[in-house]
Design a protein around this nucleic acid. Structure first.
Lengths: 239, 239
DNA sequence: AACACATGGTTAATGGTATTCGCGATTTAA
DNA sequence: TTAAATCGCGAATACCATTAACCATGTGTT
């Protein structure tokens, strides 16, 4: 039973429309093209009206951020779920590939979630870094699994620089998994490479030489899987 | 002999001032805070006057980009020059550290030169990627030296994925050094890691866990130097 | 020295943006 | 039925970029 009053229904519809429009504009023109006036025009209302729904332009950006985050996390999770549950190599590969593909297809979204736009939407305090948490957990589960199976080469805590250990510990705790410090460091080592390639590709720094970035991606994955004692799975399912 | 007419002198002064102001504003408030009106206010003229000097706001941004590029390249080159000319490990370490330090101290500049801002200032055609060229040459010289000394482990061209080889070749040619494909690939492998850490640090994604990013940096440098068959130099000079 | 021209600043105007405020209409709830 | 909450609007303020017309002044020439 939809015990929704007329007002509530109309309000929900307009908000939904506005969020969709805001997201479309952001993807098409970048977040700097996302303006209160443009959204208002698209949903057929005057700009001040949107202030009843969002906290100004910043609120619109924040709404886009939230929607995009959900989409991103779900996309990556789906890609993992498509793989053979026992093939961790394929799962890692697919997850990373999904991150890259999604990012290239949603550059403005990437910028907002994981790139230069994040500090702006997050502000000083910082939204609890959804990406660090969500993505970290997703990858972390796979690392944990390799660890349980006893086939994950990782440094002993004593062999890690003393000033690095407490920081890695905080990182591990943000992810929220009970991983050894050496494994968390291994994750960071992987992420710094993935993230580097991501930014290079999304921000267009590779265009001049690497029109298609997939060869570079595969080369990186071979490196990373090797780092984890794995090889590329022959049963990878792309979707 | 300064055969400068009064007009020319005044013009040069105002342009110099405006560029300096534009750069200061950019560093303090980010490039989105760089406005024609603000610069005009700071140099004591009305906004339209600046159109005699710059091609509107875009021209201002471009001017900042040029100045910042020169500063960046010089800073990194200086850091290298400070090292023992025969200690390639120290030179590589110092160069990378200089890139990181400069980027953290000039976040808006980093964004413009190497980050999300670059596509905007570069436009479609793309300024011949100064960074790729300048930085590539700087690091490339060091790699070339290691290669000449015969102590740079790198993959043979036959062992590199066939679709990657031609891309690497283009990359190598942009840098403008006569390096084997395997060495150029090695450079790209290093750069993707350095760049990843850079973006993570500059865009604030590490703040939550890694307040100070130097331990992570040193960990990465150990990895990278190891990749090149080097160890961290005991004679590194920091400045 | 007087002239004409180029230069570089001004003001005014246009049109875009965000945001706040107060009004009136409509819907909801008592 | 009536009072209150909600919501959209128009007007106003204050930024911004950019163009056009205009005017003073510097420059070089006659």
């Amino acid at each position: 039973m939809t015990a929704l009053t007329r007002r509530e229904r109309l309000r929900a519809e307009l908000e939904r429309d506005a969020r969709a429009v805001a997201r479309r504009i952001t993807e098409e023109e970048g977040v700097e093209g996302l303006t209160v006036a443009a959204v208002a025009r698209a949903v057929g209302v005057t700009p001040p009206a949107l202030y009843r729904y969002f906290d100004g332009r910043a609120g619109l950006v924040r709404a886009v951020y939230d929607d995009v985050t959900a989409d991103f996390v779900e996309t990556v999770a789906r890609a993992v779920a498509r793989q053979d549950p026992d093939d961790v190599s394929a799962q890692l590969h697919a997850a990373t590939r999904a991150v890259l593909d999604w990012s290239m297809a949603h550059r403005a979204g990437f910028d907002l979630l994981m790139g230069a736009g994040f500090p702006k939407v997050a502000g000083e305090d910082g939204i609890p870094t959804v990406i660090l948490r969500e993505l970290g957990r997703l990858f972390g589960e796979l690392f944990a699994r390799l660890l349980r199976e006893g086939r994950l080469p990782h440094p002993a805590e004593e062999d890690i620089a003393p000033d690095l250990v407490p920081q890695i510990r905080v990182y591990r705790d943000i992810i929220g998994l009970d991983l050894p410090v050496g494994v968390a460091l291994l994750m960071m080592t992987c992420w710094r490479q993935i993230y580097g390639l991501l930014c290079l590709a999304v921000y267009g720094h590779l265009r001049a030489a690497f029109g298609d970035h997939l060869p570079l991606f595969e080369h990186m994955m071979d490196d990373l899987l090797g780092l984890l004692g794995l090889t590329r799975s022959p049963h990878l399912r792309v979707g």
